[in-house]
C-alpha cells in the first residue's frame, strides 16, 4: 500500500511523510494495522538498523494483522499488543529508559501516530522528532468537546459520542496533545434536527 494522499487541511492538522531510517543509537517503531507495511519498507531499506530496532505492533481495528511479516524482519525486540492502551505501559517504560539519539517512528492511523507522538513529547522529545507515515484507515479519533470522552475509529459524520450520546460533527481541528480531532454537537441550536450520517473517514 502506498502513502495516503491527503486533501489540503487547516494548519492544526499534522502533515505526514514517509519513514526514513535515520542515524541514531536505537530505533523504536510503533505501528498499527497497515502501518506494518511502512515499518517493513523502512527496515528492508536499512537492514543494519534491525539489530537496534524495537517494534511494537497493534493489529488494525478493521482486522488487518501483519504480525507475521514484522516477526520475519528479525528485529532485536518485537511486541504485539492487542490495543494501544495495552501497549502504553511498555512504550512509557522504553521512553523513560531511553537516551537522546533514539529515533522514534510511528506508522498507521492518525490516532495511533498522534498517541505515540504525545507519549514521546511527554518524555521530553520535540514533536518533530517523531517520524510519521500514514497507512490504512482514515478513521478518526475524536474528542467530544462537551463530555471530554474520546471515541475511537470514527468513520461517520455526524456520529454518536460513545460516552455521552450527543450527536457530534467532526471538525478538522486537531489537538496533538489529545491525539484527537474535535467533535461538536450538531443539533445544539436546533435540538433533534440531525442530518443523516455519511461515511466520511474510511
Amino acid at each position: 500500500m502506498t502513502k495516503t494522499e491527503f486533501e489540503p487541511a487547516i494548519p492544526s492538522r499534522p502533515v505526514y511523510g514517509v519513514l526514513h531510517p535515520a542515524v541514531g543509537s536505537a530505533h523504536l517503531f510503533v505501528a498499527d494495522g497497515e502501518g506494518a507495511g511502512a515499518v517493513c519498507d523502512a527496515l528492508t531499506s536499512a537492514p543494519a538498523l534491525k539489530a537496534a530496532a524495537h517494534v511494537i505492533y497493534i493489529p488494525g481495528a478493521n482486522g488487518s494483522d501483519h504480525t507475521g511479516a514484522l516477526q520475519a524482519l528479525g528485529v532485536a525486540q518485537f511486541h504485539r499488543a492487542p490495543s494501544f492502551a495495552a501497549a502504553l505501559p511498555r512504550l512509557t517504560k522504553v521512553l523513560a529508559d531511553a537516551h537522546m539519539g533514539m529515533q522514534i517512528y510511528a506508522a498507521g492511523t492518525e490516532g495511533l501516530m498522534a498517541q505515540v507522538a504525545a507519549a514521546a513529547q511527554a518524555a521530553g522529545l520535540p514533536y518533530e522528532a517523531v517520524q510519521m507515515e500514514h497507512r490504512g484507515s482514515l478513521a478518526r479519533r475524536v474528542q467530544c468537546v462537551h463530555c471530554k470522552g474520546v471515541t475511537e475509529n470514527v468513520t461517520l459524520d455526524p456520529f454518536q459520542c460513545s460516552h455521552c450520546g450527543l450527536t457530534l460533527f467532526v471538525r478538522d481541528h486537531f489537538s496533538r496533545r489529545l491525539a484527537a480531532f474535535q467533535g461538536v454537537c450538531i443539533d445544539a441550536e436546533d435540538p433533534g434536527q440531525i442530518p443523516a450520517s455519511v461515511e466520511r473517514f474510511k
Binding site: 543509537s25 537522546m100 539519539g101 533514539m102 522529545l125 520535540p126 518533530e128
Partner: peptide, 9 residues
Amino acid sequence: RAMGWPDRA
C-alpha cells in the same frame, strides 16, 4: 545531528 539528536533540542 550525527548522533541523531533532533535539531530542536
